Simulated assay, not measured.
Amino acid sequence: MNPDIYKLLIIDDHPIVAEGIAAIASRQKNITCKSITCLKDLLSVIASEQFDMCITDLEFPDTNGFQFIHILQDKLPSCKILIYTMHEEPWVIARLSELNISGAVSKHTDTSELSTAITSIRMGNKYFSEVFATLNKRKSTTEGHKIPELSKREKEVLSYLAEGLSTSQIAALLCLSSNTIQTYRKRLMEKLNAKNVAELVSKGKEIF
Rank of each mutant, 00 (worst) to 15 (best):
P61I: 11
K126N: 13
N125L: 10
L72K: 03
Q28P: 04
F66T: 07
T85H: 04
S102T: 01
R122G: 07
L43F: 07
H87Q: 12
N136C: 10
V131F: 03
K139T: 04
D41C: 11
L39F: 12
I36S: 15
L58V: 04
Y84A: 04
F68M: 11
R27P: 08
I46T: 11
I101Q: 02
M53F: 08
K34P: 05
S129T: 03
C38K: 15
K29Q: 12
T56N: 08
T85N: 05
T32Y: 08
P90Y: 08
S97T: 11
G65I: 05
E113H: 13
C54V: 15
E88S: 13
T119M: 10
A133S: 15
K126L: 01
L82E: 01
N125M: 08
I93M: 12
L39Y: 13
A104V: 10
I101L: 10
A104G: 07
S48E: 13
C54D: 03
L96Y: 01
T109N: 07
S129Y: 10
M123F: 04
R95Y: 04
A94T: 12
E98W: 04
K107H: 09
F132D: 06
G103T: 07
H108Y: 08
I55G: 07
N64A: 04
H108A: 08
C38R: 11
K139F: 10
R122N: 05
A117L: 03
A25L: 08
Y84T: 05
S35G: 03
L58K: 10
E88P: 02
H108T: 09
S112I: 09
Q73Y: 00
A117S: 09
E49S: 14
K107W: 03
F132S: 06
T37A: 05
I83N: 00
P61T: 14
A94P: 00
A47D: 14
K40N: 07
H108M: 06
D41R: 12
S78F: 10
L43V: 13
V131S: 15
S35W: 03
K107E: 05
K34S: 08
D41A: 14
S44E: 14
C54E: 02
L82D: 00
M123C: 06
F66A: 06
S44K: 15
V45M: 06
S35T: 12
V92P: 00
Q50I: 04
Q28F: 08
K139P: 00
P77H: 02
I101S: 04
R27V: 07
F51C: 09
Q28N: 09
S35Q: 14
S44F: 12
L76I: 01
